[in-house]
Design a protein around this nucleic acid. Sequence first.
DNA 1: ATTGACATCCAAAACGTTTTGGTATATACT
DNA 2: AGTATATACCAAAACGTTTTGGATGTCAAT
Lengths: 342, 342
Amino acid sequence: MSVSIKDIAKRVNRSITTVSRALNDYDDVSPETKQLILKTAKEMGYSPNSFAQRLQKQQSDTIGLILPTFSPRFSDPYFSELLAGIGNKAVDLGFDLLVSTRSPGPEENKAYEKLVEGGRVDGFIVVRTRNQDARIEYLLSKNFPFVAFGRTDDCNRFSYVDEDGYYGMQLVAEHLAGLNHEVIGCITPKPDLAFTEKRIAGLRDGLENYNIKLDPAYIKAGDLTQKSGYELGGELLDLPETPTAIVACNDLMAFGVMSAVQERGLVVGKDVSVTGFDDIPMSEFSHPPLTTVHQPVYQIGSMVCEMLVKIIRDESSEHQQILLKPSLIVRQSTGIYVKKAK
Amino acid sequence: MSVSIKDIAKRVNRSITTVSRALNDYDDVSPETKQLILKTAKEMGYSPNSFAQRLQKQQSDTIGLILPTFSPRFSDPYFSELLAGIGNKAVDLGFDLLVSTRSPGPEENKAYEKLVEGGRVDGFIVVRTRNQDARIEYLLSKNFPFVAFGRTDDCNRFSYVDEDGYYGMQLVAEHLAGLNHEVIGCITPKPDLAFTEKRIAGLRDGLENYNIKLDPAYIKAGDLTQKSGYELGGELLDLPETPTAIVACNDLMAFGVMSAVQERGLVVGKDVSVTGFDDIPMSEFSHPPLTTVHQPVYQIGSMVCEMLVKIIRDESSEHQQILLKPSLIVRQSTGIYVKKAK
DNA sequence: ATTGACATCCAAAACGTTTTGGTATATACT
DNA sequence: AGTATATACCAAAACGTTTTGGATGTCAAT
């Protein structure tokens, strides 16, 4: 089949040890032999069998990523970008990326266990953290390397990258308050997601600074899909006292809200302001373009991956915790609220 | 470290051969020992080292998927759904899915070569086929198992699943013709993508059946992003004779077109009709909801994966080629064109 | 008593690497 | 001459499996 180190050894009349060491650039191989071996290796089209390497080295050079999918039709532009960030960095660092998708629950935990116990991966990237996060509990209990994108309740026990959603939502609050909005609706994900609470709190506290109250009846829990934004946005708009601004916790739901608004013959950014969170590429080209909180997902993917590899390689046990300060991208989906004559 | 077959052997006082055979349910192990071995294996928390297995069996039980990303900010809901379909099926079949992203070009080819030559994967899923597809040429030359999602110029040399884009576009043409549209614009991907030509041809021929000519000046090549839909849609709308309908070759570009239309104060579905292709989940909740050609991406992912595994396992060399008949989903982004008085 | 069939087990080789713990030769220093 | 050092090499073990090609013992049929 494919050429092995043994074939090369035979060809150059050296031991397999020497060939191996030449290929790995050890310095107890003379420059000439090294040259020769490298050359014939290339000639013969040698490429190492990674399973043999990994078996011997007792490491997998593989990073695991299990995407939590909530519906069978999993379709989130946010994750594709994160995936690209992680994947490209992983390749740069010589790691493979093993991906699967699982909906949260026992099946998901089993998937983690299988990869850990089979020695299949050297570490995990855990995304979309939850408050009581079984995945994280498990990985901590096994002392298995991982980095999270997002925090949990007690989060100083591991490394993570997160964006400061509390602060981001304060920016939104400030922006909306500055536009005279007073009746504000909010569409969140399910409360078990770690960032849900933080974002609501940010919005609430931010509005309070301007003496605006966020009525709990105006907070609706969705599932981050456009569909739920559409439905819950509709519910908010059909309330007796219509909100003049609706804050969605991600862009996808914001798009859904915009559709609901427009369906009612209202103009987004004039009659009702809508904001999102994430700033996915689409947001710039929606109609109207979406005011949202930017999240550098691609870079976050890169960072998370790099941190994980560092942990895997160094066994450095101090936790690195990065909290990014978000910025607000103001576009045309928000505008001044002008009180209508009664 | 983790328990191996050797540890079990020691514990139950049998050879490692017997343990291995018991675990693999060979019938030259007595029922009692088999029972015992299975029990202690579970007790000790044994799980096989997949690298050792794969090294020995000379197969990787892994499927490779290299997503072609065109921009650094890769963000395509279409691919996340495909990924989920492939990934979940792969898990069911006991395969790992190895994912990375690469933009088309020499780097991409190298990535394929590396995985093939390193024995890293048993087969590939090739997506978004191109006319002269170097990836496919390479895999064919190596006689390496793969299944494509999409066809190429000469496509009876390998297995694929594709949706009949020619037919799908004919449906669009028929629909638009039925709505009195005569000046029709079209936004395509780059011509090297395999489906581009087919879709244009479908549209052109479909329109011709109604004696409507598709003016080449009204065909613009984009890159499948919302952004390019927005920009090229704008170009079409600014033409001296404005098209009354714009056909985009995917939903994302269609969204961009809708934004461009709306930005000009026109109403989508009334002043200008817009159609997409793919029917991603968002399309149902855009404003207005998008008329588009449905593509069961999740299922396609499943199918492609299943076909590949079959090829890997059986070495069955007959090519299976599946062409799905698409259906048109009519929503509110298209409407009757009423001639305006001059 | 021999033969054959069957059930149950196992030692050793193999998969393709890396690493350990050397050896042999040449050169340099007392 | 003897010793130390450096250079260039290598045999064998190890990683954790599966598979090959038996070995051994029992029982039934001849």
